[in-house]
Amino acid sequence: MCENCGNSDLSLLNDIFAKMAENGDNLITVLQKAQEIYGYLPTDVLYEIAEKTGASPAKVIGVATFYTQFRLKKVGKYLILLCKGTACHVNGADGIEKAICEELKIKDGDTTEDGLFSLKTVACLGCCSLSPVMMINEETYGSLTPARTVEILREIRRREEA
C-alpha cells in the first residue's frame, strides 16, 4: 500500500491508548512510547495512533516529521548519535564523522547494509566537557579521536560476530 507500512502488531499499542487519558499523554508522548515498542514509527502505527487519539493523520505525520527523535524508518541495532554541538565542533567532531562514515561506509542518517549500525548526528548531547562525544545506544563515549572511534565500532562488530 505505501512505503514503510509494515505489518506491525498493533495490539502492542493497546496499553498506551488505555492509559493515555489517565496519564494526560499528548500526541508526542504517545509517539514516543510507540517508538519505544517498534524501534521506529511504521506508517500503520501512525494510522492507528491517529485513529485512537482522534488526531487527523495529517497532524500525526506532521508531528512525527517535526521532531528529530522520531524515526520513520527502521534503524540499525546500534544507533550512533554523534554530537555536533559547539564544543564537539571545536574539538574535531567533523573528523569523527568522517571516520565513522568511512569505517561503516554510510552517511549521516543511513543504516549499514547488515543493519548493525545507524548514524545520526545530533545537535548536542550535553557532554561538552568530554567533546568530541558520541552515544551508541545508551552508552556515551567521550574524548574521541578518529582512531579510537573506529576501534569502538570494530569492537562492537567483533562482539556481534562472536
Partner: peptide, 19 residues
C-alpha cells in the same frame, strides 16, 4: 522530542500540547 526551537516559550507550549 528533539527540536531546538522548543526552547522558545510559545513553541514549547505548542509542543507541550503535543503539536
Amino acid at each position: 522530542a528533539g527540536a531546538f526551537v522548543c526552547g522558545e516559550e510559545t513553541a514549547l507550549i505548542e509542543s507541550l500540547e503535543g503539536k
